[in-house]
Design a protein around this nucleic acid. Structure first.
Lengths: 131, 131
DNA sequence: ATAATTGCAAAACGTTTGCAGTAAA
DNA sequence: TTTACTGCAAACGTTTTGCAATTAT
């Protein structure tokens, strides 16, 4: 992979963010500084960086994707109200691996745990407005 | 929810299938019998039936959805090669619930375990063609 | 009679792709 | 000089939606 100014900025935008940004969030952030940047370039580079192991791609249940600077294996919890994403380090899930072996004809390759909840901020906001 | 012929056939198509069909699979199957049926009607009804608890909607990581006659809580494993889906009944994962409580600010509402593997059929096919 | 439901077509959504031009090696 | 990369715009596959016509109650 050859150096490119765009890719460097796209990588840093994810690496320096704590909010697991989408491709569009990266695009909107960089656009002010780089008016000719295109959304297609952002998508292409995020996927290349994920393929190269420099970022982690997080496909969400609604079909959109987020990108994470932390490439070590870990899970994510998504807020049902505002859509924000936080990291979770789950203990090893031996029970899952055993169940697949015992109960199905599949050979297990990988798994994700997709967690849904409500973040502290949204709990406080809804506490103010309703019961 | 008022009775409709289309909804009844759409429900039965999922209930009588073992392959966790997509909206489009239901549409293609019924189209021969019901040439005026539209894909929009299939989507509308599958979502209504899922909202009413008569079917379970399974959002996959690639953004597409499948529908399941089994509405009890359970997980699914998706074949990486042919895309087929099988049911898995996982033991309760207390470890997950405790980790969320200890490690994050989120209140956990629900979670899905999305498993990926290779089904028996695909293992046999690739065993014939390669090592 | 009335309002849920339909078929149709268009639009929405996040994402990918073909292409001619640009820039890194 | 070569070829990976870019911007642009068009296309993609899945899903939703607006609307006038139909159908269940």
């Amino acid at each position: 992979m050859r150096y490119s100014h765009q890719r460097e900025r796209i990588f840093r935008a994810v690496a320096e963010s704590c909010e697991h940004p989408t491709a569009n969030m990266v695009y909107e952030q960089l656009k002010t500084d780089m008016p000719r940047l295109s959304l297609g370039t952002v998508y292409r580079n995020l996927n290349q960086l994920a393929d190269a192991g420099r970022l982690k791609k997080i496909p969400l249940a609604d079909g959109s994707c987020r990108f994470d600077k932390t490439t070590k294996a870990h899970s994510h919890i998504v807020c049902e109200q505002c859509g924000c994403v936080a990291d979770v380090h789950l203990p090893s899930l031996k029970a899952i691996e055993e169940t697949i072996a015992n109960e199905t004809d599949f050979s297990l390759r990988s798994y994700d745990v997709v967690l849904r909840g409500v973040c502290r901020n949204c709990r406080q906001l809804s506490g103010q407005n309703a019961g």
